[in-house]
Simulated assay, not measured.
Amino acid sequence: MEDTIPPAQPPPGPRLGPPRSLRPWHRRPNPLRRPTDRFQARIGLGLLLAVLVVAPVAGVVVEELAHRHYTDTARHQALTRHETSATLTEDVPRHPEPGSDEAKLARYPAEVRLTTPDGRTATTRAEVPPGLSAGGQVRVWVTADGEATEPPLTREQIRSRSMGCALLAAVGTVLAGAAAHAVICHVVRRRNLTAWERAWAETAPRWTPSG
């Protein structure tokens, strides 16, 4: 019985996927790659991962601490400050643009006279709206000693300041990681230069022709 001739096979097609040389897990060894280069790459990767983990955690922790601090501050301010009526002892300058949105928010320092919680009459300087005349009545926040001050922190102010502290903590963590990486790179670079100079000092005499 004659042998059966197998049918012709099509030529092999192109290899699927990237060539082995382009796959990160099949990198070819580089003879010029120094141990310090591998160390620097690993340190850079480690710092990057550390920053990605620490920055959000630092932001959350700092925001919680800041929120607690400002909440306690607002509570203390509410206990030690109060709003009262005061009498202007001098005219307040007029705003250059009366009736404008800027004029509604503007405040000018002026001397006022008020009565403290213990019944004393005190004089202090407070921020008041523009255009008022002497003898007019204004509402001001004062301390127990009769000194003009700011009103207690509001919830919005507490939230805003806490978020600002959290942002600063996260940015500070990133900057600290970048600074650490820069310092390590500088140290490694100096070490490489020192090693190169030492190796060149040993090699150069063999390259120099004798006279």
Rank of each mutant, 00 (worst) to 15 (best):
T143D: 04
A41P: 01
T208W: 04
R198M: 03
P18T: 05
P35F: 05
D37H: 09
A178V: 12
L65E: 12
Q157W: 05
A74W: 04
T36N: 03
E102M: 07
S162M: 06
G119F: 14
W141L: 06
A110Y: 02
R27D: 05
R198L: 06
A66G: 13
P209H: 13
R189I: 07
V171M: 07
T173E: 09
G211S: 13
C165E: 12
P24G: 10
H181D: 15
V138K: 00
A204H: 09
Q9D: 08
T116P: 07
P109G: 15
T115K: 15
T84G: 00
D37W: 08
T149E: 14
Q77P: 13
G172C: 11
A180D: 02
A126F: 13
G99S: 04
A110N: 13
A50F: 07
P129N: 12
D37P: 00
I5F: 01
V51D: 02
P152Y: 02
L88W: 09
G136D: 08
L193K: 05
P56T: 07
W25G: 11
P151Y: 02
G17K: 00
V140M: 10
L65N: 09
L79H: 03
T154M: 12
P31A: 11
R28W: 08
V140A: 11
A66E: 07
P6I: 06
H69N: 13
P151L: 12
T80D: 08
R23S: 14
P7R: 00
Q137G: 06
P56G: 10
T4S: 03
L168Q: 14
A176I: 15
V53E: 00
H76P: 01
G211C: 04
L22C: 03
T154F: 08
E64Q: 05
T4G: 00
A182Y: 10
A50M: 04
P129Q: 08
D145A: 14
T123E: 05
L193M: 02
T71P: 01
T203V: 07
P205F: 14
A182H: 11
A169V: 10
E202F: 03
P7A: 08
P151M: 09
V188D: 11
H69M: 05
P24L: 07
A55F: 10
L45F: 07
R155M: 15
N30H: 02
P93L: 04
